[in-house]
Design a protein around this nucleic acid. Structure first.
Length: 614
RNA sequence: GCCCUUGUAGCUCAGUGGAUAGAGCAUCCGCCUCCUAAGCGGAGGGUCGCAGGUUCGAUUCCUGCCAAGGGCGCCA
């Protein structure tokens, strides 16, 4: 999302040693000097900002600037003439091999080989720290993601949020942020009662009762395991004849296939009414045991979620329970603060929050007329708590369907803290499956655990992260679980494995390679494949910075694909083990060792393994 | 109706105020006596949804229109 929650970019990244960024600054200094002279000669003073960018095509050199194009109009001279004047005024530099004027007036810089080669030495020295900023100095940020309701297994949509949130957290941690990862457990509210009743009905089945599941309950088979556990642990202690459960409950009506919207709404209302009555009946019949059933149902679902996330290589620093916030008085205290500030009022028997005064479309209900808190109320208290715990920036990863919810949470935070920019929300667009259906209530869907079981964590995570998070994603299950060439994750992993294999070959032949000695041979890296690889390696640090600044791990995925492509192309054309030229061999091994290091560093941020053999 | 997002190759998607708009898959043609062929090279394939505007320059920024998805609860 654009706007108020954006992380400030004030902290300029300083790479640990000479590579692309200082080079860019160096060229900008040269250009600034030339610009000053050209402007003085022309008697002008208004100087445009110098735009200097990496080139897309090697034939345009390594960096290009459109400065002459920008100056053409104010100076009243043709762009190419301005470019020539600028180039003449450029101070000489040993790091620049040559400068060319091309196209309508672009100035292209070709760098000296040595300017690229040194990155290999940096990578060999820094190892897994290359490209990283572990200082934590940019600030503290709390990222909340997944937070799937503990009422059933996670589906492919949750998987996307998990892969995205975890990788983004890694990315932020790798670019100077102090990061805390949190999962908000929605273990309070009506949905939990629906879960409880659904499990209890399955339990009654275990007792031999003929039960019909309510149409808007949770019908999935996964609850049968919880029911069985309940039965095993407590026997028939919670048994009630099905007839007594059903007695006097309002009937569910079903809309016909060609129902109008009004008919559909009426049917839905009757089904919800039935469900509410069933919940009330369960509470009445079970008494204190209701909580026992509920606890077991929740624990089972949460355990399944934790197990899946663990398999998916996703870790959290903290799991925050909604119920614990309520029971611990956090919600009450948040409400008291709102009331104290005059931000609430009562209307129609409910308590409202004045969110409209802070940019929301309308005011929102905190406490319903029946005395219970809205989801919003508890979530608001949770966000206040996160801030109270000393995290000045909150980053929430939500499904795109929560879009309309952002304004009210931000409004509440602003109302209490005066800060508009404390909350940043990244919305994950929907995931569709290339085949099959999703939906918890259908009882028949592809779970995240299914994907992990069939495709593996690496392929699944990589597939999710190949698309920008704010774009719709079509998850091709067959492709993700294919062990074939088609699967994109192998392309990158294979590059890493190939490099490892080269070093294995070297060892098998009794050869040696020494990193320190190799640093003195880097001047031998001069062909086009080597230059391409060197250029990419040098761009890794800024790739991380850019990916983090735009909350876009997929940028890193594309970078790693490019890097793997450069390696594979190099591999196919040149031999690395060149027995008759030890110096060249040493230099090439240094280059591919550095490449393997960067691939490993990047994959680690994505939560994907870098196998040494495939 | 109002708000948000999206529209780029047959399919799935990157990308950018600049030079000839890219990748994977699919189709076709080549490359293993040699470090892993899960690889490499090449070919075909495009009105960057449509129309205006800003600009030296727009696929990119702005406006309108068309189309798709989502959101507009005292649900979570």
């Amino acid at each position: 999302m654009r706007g108020s929650g954006k992380i400030p970019r004030s902290a300029v990244f300083r790479p640990p040693a000479a590579n692309i960024l200082p080079m860019k600054e160096h060229l900008q200094e040269l250009l600034a000097s030339a610009l000053e002279r050209v402007l003085a000669d022309a008697g002008a003073q208004q100087a445009p900002a110098i735009q200097l960018d990496p080139t897309k095509d090697r034939k345009f050199g390594d960096f290009q600037t459109n400065l002459a194009l920008q100056l053409a109009k104010p100076l009243g001279r043709p762009p190419r003439a301005v470019a020539e004047a600028l180039v003449r005024a450029l101070p000489p530099s040993p790091r620049v091999a040559r400068v060319e004027i091309a196209g309508p007036g672009f100035i292209n810089f070709f760098l000296a080989d040595a300017a690229f080669q040194s990155v290999v030495a940096d990578i060999l020295d820094l190892g897994e720290r290359y490209g990283r900023d572990d200082s934590g100095g940019k600030g503290r940020i709390l990222i909340e993601f997944v937070s799937a309701n503990p009422t059933g297994p996670m589906h492919v949509g949750h998987g996307r949020g998990a892969a995205y949130g975890d990788s983004l957290a890694n990315l932020l941690a790798a670019t100077g942020w102090t990061v805390w990862r949190e999962y908000y457990i929605n273990d309070a509210g009506r949905q939990v009662d629906v879960l409880t009743v659904s499990v209890w009905l399955r339990y009654l089945e275990c007792c031999g009762e003929p039960v019909t599941m309510p149409r808007r309950g949770y019908p999935g088979d996964y609850l049968k395991a919880s029911a069985q556990r309940l039965f095993d642990a407590h026997g028939r202690a919670f048994h009630v004849p099905a007839a007594r459960v059903r007695e006097g409950l309002p009937e569910e009506s079903v809309a016909p296939d060609d129902a109008s919207e009004a008919q559909l709404a009426a049917a839905k209302a009757s089904q919800e009414a039935h469900l509410d009555a069933l919940i009330a009946r369960a509470r009445a019949l079970l008494g204190v045991h209701y909580a026992t059933v509920q606890r077991l149902a929740l624990d089972d679902q949460l355990a399944a979620i934790k197990s899946t996330l663990d398999a998916f290589n996703v870790r959290f620093d903290q799991w925050t329970s909604e119920k614990a916030l309520v029971d611990g008085g956090f919600v009450a205290r948040a409400l008291a603060r709102l009331k104290e500030k005059g931000l609430t009022y009562e209307k129609d028997g409910a308590l409202w929050m004045r969110t409209q005064a802070f940019g929301d479309e309308k005011d929102r209900v905190l406490i319903k007329a029946d005395g219970t808190a809205t989801y919003y109320c508890n979530d608001l208290a949770y966000h206040i708590d996160k801030l109270d715990r000393g995290w000045p920036l909150l980053l929430d990863v939500w499904g795109a369907d929560h879009h309309g919810y952002i304004a009210r949470v931000r409004a509440a935070i602003e109302a209490l803290t005066g800060r508009k920019d404390a909350l940043n929300v990244q919305l994950i667009q929907f995931v569709t499956l290339s085949s099959g259906r999703m939906g918890k209530r259908s009882g028949n869907f592809v779970t995240l655990q299914d994907l992990i079981d069939e495709a593996g964590t690496d392929a699944t995570r990589f597939f999710y992260l190949t698309r920008s998070h704010d774009q719709h994603l079509e998850f091709d299950i067959d492709l993700a679980r294919s062990q074939s060439t088609d699967n994109p994750v192998y392309y990158v992993q294979y590059a890493h494995a190939r490099i490892c294999s080269v070093f294995q070959q070297l060892a098998d032949k009794g050869g040696h390679w020494d990193a320190q000695a190799a640093k003195l041979t880097l001047h031998r890296l001069t062909n086009t494949h080597e230059k391409a690889l060197l250029t990419l390696l040098g761009r890794y640090p800024e790739t991380l910075q850019r990916a983090a600044a735009s909350y876009a791990p997929h940028t890193l995925v594309f970078f790693l694909k490019d890097l793997a492509e450069a390696l594979h192309g190099y591999y196919n054309v040149h031999r690395f083990l060149v027995e008759d030229d030890p110096e060249l061999q040493s230099a090439r091994l240094a280059l591919i060792r550095a490449t393997a290091q960067v691939i490993r560093n990047g994959l680690r941020i994505l939560g994907v393994s870098a196998p040494e053999k495939m």
